[in-house]
């Protein structure tokens, strides 16, 4: 960390080059593959086509699986917001003694493999209306994605010292409603936004829970994708590109928020 101008070391540049190749080649190849006519012995495809996308769009389950995934993801975001944000605020503002408990409950999902979560939920909720239903899937998705909502919200609450801000606002004559709406919410909005995007992206891409809990009964986008990997690679490529693109957009939006609001968001992911 010298202040004088430095040039990159050759070994560092070589390592970063390999890293970039490893990270980008599979993704780039999938993008190309999804629009290629024939690509089996050349460096670049021989021709380009949108045929695979048309086939994918026209597939019986395409629209429904995309809709299902949006329903599940948006429900998880919405219910996750309602469960996690008020609770986290409450613990920061009024009940700091409960912080270790909350932290523990938020770490727990990382310690549960998704297959185990799915198995445990199916064991307990084998009866209607929950058994193998979209409702159970949404519940499972919330458990699995809660930490992604909690982390950024908790970090932005920790960054503003809720207690002092709340007391200062009360001291100036604000009502509880005004404290929440005009002091707390604007300050933790970046955290809430990144949390929501993170939950949306992870739930949208989550295959394990969807495959084991609802499976063919309520197909989500990743389930359809895996089906196609075994049937038609071209269409699968088109579907993979769609999920990559959604992941890119969500990640870049989160990074944009993080850079503007300077919230630190930790990426801890167990899959």
């Amino acid at each position: 960390m010298n202040q004088t101008a430095r040039r990159p070391s050759p070994s560092g540049a070589a390592m970063i080059g390999l890293f970039l190749a490893y990270m980008l080649i599979p993704i780039a190849a999938t993008y190309l593959f999804s629009v290629a006519t024939k690509w089996d012995a050349t460096i670049l495809p021989e021709g380009f086509t949108t045929e695979w996308y048309v086939t994918a769009f026209n597939h019986a389950y395409f629209a429904s699986s995309l809709t299902n995934s949006f329903i599940v993801s948006l429900s998880a975001v919405l219910i996750g917001l309602l469960l996690v944000v008020p609770t986290t605020y409450w613990v920061h503002a009024r009940l700091t003694g409960a912080k270790p408990l909350l932290e523990l409950l938020m770490i727990l999902p990382f310690g549960i493999p998704t297959v185990v979560l799915a198995l445990a939920l199916i064991r307990v909720y084998s009866f209607p209306p929950l058994g193998r239903s979209p409702f159970l899937l949404i519940g499972a998705m919330i458990v699995f994605s809660m930490p992604f909502m909690y982390r950024p919200v908790s970090n932005s609450l920790a960054a503003i010292n809720v207690r002092i801000l709340t007391e200062a606002a009360y001291n100036l004559g604000a009502s509880t409603f005004q404290v929440l709406g005009r002091v707390i919410a604007p300050n933790i909005m970046p955290g809430i936004l990144s949390g929501s995007l993170l939950v949306f992206a992870t739930v949208f891409a989550e295959f394990t829970l969807a495959n084991l809990i609802t499976g063919a009964g309520f197909k989500t986008f990743p389930v359809l994708l895996v089906e196609f990997t075994r049937r038609d690679g071209r269409v699968a490529a088109a579907l993979a590109v769609i999920s990559f693109t959604i992941a890119w957009i969500a990640s870049l939006a989160i990074l944009g928020i993080a850079r503007r609001g300077k919230t630190t968001h930790e990426t801890v992911r167990a899959r």
Partner: peptide, 18 residues
């Protein structure tokens, strides 16, 4: 940040592609 979240079905398929 993005690629560590690419785990799962689409990534596996990307490796099948190459």
């Amino acid at each position: 940040d993005v690629t560590t979240n690419f785990a799962g079905a689409p990534l596996a398929f990307a490796f099948i592609v190459i």
